[in-house]
Design a protein around this nucleic acid. Structure first.
Length: 574
RNA sequence: GGUGGGGUAGCUCAGCUGGUUAGAGCGCAGGACUCAUAAUCCUGAGGUCGUGAGUUCAAGUCUCACUCUCACUACCA
């Protein structure tokens, strides 16, 4: 047994997340957390809402709400959406929490004491009408290069050229449209990432088990030369820049830390809040002088977050000179695309977490998004594929298997697990099959290869159907009831096993299955691994045990559903 | 522009450090079975592995060029 700390990239506060966000960080992290718990590891799964930054302020403004109230409401909404998707966070915190304020300020002070923070002056677009500085993307104007009129301050959509907002012709605020903008000088704190470049490279090179996606992105940034990064912003909502005595730093009134500086620190702060709430101890998870060396720390994120987790946050950690835990495994995902294109709220393309649950149970989404996880490359979501994996994998392969054998048991064996019979060829076959497949499944989970884990899970379910065909209890029943009994007994034990291995992905259906055939809670963990005792697994249920035939576990998605959803959410044509 | 990922059966994707007739699921065709959500099981068809060149006894797998596509490019997060 080991201690595993799991974090998934913090979902940003400005709205309920779409399926791509779910599939690329929270969901795989949850499935990994569940699988590791079932294997007997001590798991701590931490997540939180990322609440600072310009978009949060603007979203609140658009809703006519105070930022704090808006974030409070959105935090609750996301927390609820997570709960409905059965994300098994041990703690779901907020980056705006008091604990994070204190920790972020402490980190900054420590970094400055070690000479890794400098104050510099930069030039930034200020909008008088909006009364705020504008991030590059919120300034628009005419592209100095191609004359395109809707060019954003960071990049022109017309010619694709990278821009500096200062160079835009006729700049205006994308927030209000006002042309009353000017360039102002403003002072900020810079984190001297460049100073730690060599340490970071050494650390990245030594990292084992990261997907190529993660290492290649990290090395690319290092190769280009790490630039020092501003870690403060001219905003009101956020973590104030303070001195050690808690007073606001001179010249930093009206400034706060940059969201990307404080967000990863929230992983730690949220753990502190978890400890405070549960009476747990946070330090053994995060302080290497308190035992965190024993912890396996795994981060889940989309590829856009890699640089922050592989470089910026480690700069904070290493730069502090204190014994904080660094990430061990960085699992990065590509994007889920919508029929190959982008998710877009405005164009009615894509499904958001809350809407998703209106149209199908969370298990359906969990299964499909994991079986088609964007691990190797971007993965296209289509309604047709969704229908196919739900109907075929869940309804036909698993659901129908559970149904056929439990109903047969109810009809011919009085709903009780039958005794009698001697194992033969079919039993030897399924035993051999499981003896290779179950260790394989475990290996996939341990390697965090989710698509493969799902393929293996499905293959195990499918083997159950093949076993029943071979054992054919309905044929034997006519001449030899004992021979039929063993088929039913093995079949029902397979149901139990299938439910057990299904738990990380489709927890609701798994619970229904295990309840129906009476597997007690304490018999649902994975006490199998490299040395799987298959015979014991297939005779785990006590003879005579009452078996209930569950209702239809997975109802199928009809073509008419697909048509209706395409109409509502957009499809191939966008 | 720079960098990274991807381009493998109709569709979605596996193919590790190069090595027997290139795999899976779905879809399709045929057959079997009848316990089951018209489910399941078996068999089969289907790919000159983006293009061109190169290295090698041997390349989907390595090198180079080209091409298409997606993403990132540090003040959106």
């Amino acid at each position: 047994m080991s201690k595993i700390l799991i974090t998934s990239a913090l979902p940003y506060i400005n709205g309920v997340k779409h399926l791509g966000n779910l599939a690329g960080s929270m969901l795989p992290a949850d499935i990994y957390a569940r699988a590791m718990r079932l294997m007997g590891h001590e798991v701590l799964y931490i997540c939180a809402t990322d609440e600072h930054g310009t978009p949060a302020e603007l979203a609140a403004q658009a809703e006519g709400m105070e930022v704090a109230a808006y974030c409070e409401a959105m935090h609750e909404a996301q927390k609820q959406a997570g709960a409905q998707f059965k994300l098994s966070y041990d703690y779901f915190g907020r980056s705006s929490a008091k604990s994070n304020h204190a920790l972020t300020q402490a980190f900054a002070q420590q970094l400055e004491a070690r000479g890794l923070i400098e104050e510099r002056v930069s030039r930034q677009v200020y909008s008088n009408a909006d009364g705020r500085f504008l991030p590059d993307r919120y300034v628009e104007g005419t592209c100095p290069s191609c004359g395109y009129e809707g060019a954003r301050g960071d990049q022109c959509d017309g010619c694709g050229k990278l821009l500096d907002p200062v160079d835009l012709i006729d700049p205006y605020s994308a927030v209000s449209g006002s042309k009353d903008v000017e360039i102002r000088e403003t002072n900020h704190l810079y984190l001297r990432q460049s100073a730690l470049s060599d340490d970071l490279r050494k650390w990245v090179n030594a990292a084992k088990g990261w997907p190529p996606l993660a290492t290649s992105i990290a090395l690319k940034w290092l190769d280009e030369g790490l630039r020092d990064r501003a870690i403060t912003r001219d905003l009101k909502w956020g973590i104030p820049v303070t001195n050690e005595d808690g007073s606001v730093r001179k010249g930093f009134e009206g400034k706060v830390f940059y969201v990307w500086f404080d967000a990863p620190i929230e992983y730690i702060a949220a753990t502190q809040d978890w400890a405070a709430e549960t009476g747990g101890d946070w330090a053994p998870w995060w302080r290497t002088d308190k035992g965190a060396d024993e912890v396996q720390y795994v981060q889940f994120m989309g590829k856009d977050n890699v640089a922050f987790h592989a470089l910026s946050f480690p700069t904070t950690i290493i730069g502090s000179g204190e014994p904080w835990k660094l990430v061990d495994q960085l699992k990065a995902f590509n994007w889920v695309t919508w029929y190959g294109g982008k998710f877009s709220t405005s164009q009615k393309r894509g499904v958001f977490m809350d809407q998703a649950l209106d149209i199908a149970p969370s298990d359906y989404w969990r299964w499909h998004l994991t079986a088609n996880a964007p691990e190797g490359s971007d993965a296209a979501f289509t309604w047709e594929e969704f229908q196919s994996s739900v109907n075929s994998d869940l309804a036909n392969v698993l659901g129908n298997f559970v149904n056929r054998i439990t109903k047969y048991c109810a009809g011919k064996f009085d709903g009780k697990l039958p005794a009698g019979g001697t194992p033969g060829e079919a039993e030897a076959w399924i035993e051999a099959e499981l003896a290779t497949r179950i260790p394989q499944l475990i290996k996939c989970y341990e390697a965090r290869e989710f698509r493969k884990a799902m393929t293996e899970t499905r293959a195990i379910w499918a083997a159950g159907n093949e076993y029943l065909t071979q054992a054919a209890p309905w044929t034997h029943y006519k001449t030899d009831v004992d021979q039929a009994a063993i088929g039913v007994r093995y079949g029902l034990n397979l149901v139990a096993l299938f439910g057990i291995i299904a738990q990380p992905v489709i927890p609701d259906a798994a619970a229904k299955i295990l309840d129906a055939i009476g597997v007690p809670e304490d018999k649902r963990s994975w006490n199998f691994g490299e040395t799987t005792d298959v015979k014991a697994l297939l005779s785990a249920l006590p003879e005579g045990q009452a078996i209930a035939a569950p209702d239809v576990l997975f109802s199928k998605i009809e073509d008419t559903d697909i048509e209706a959803w395409t109409e509502r959410f957009g499809g191939a044509e966008g």
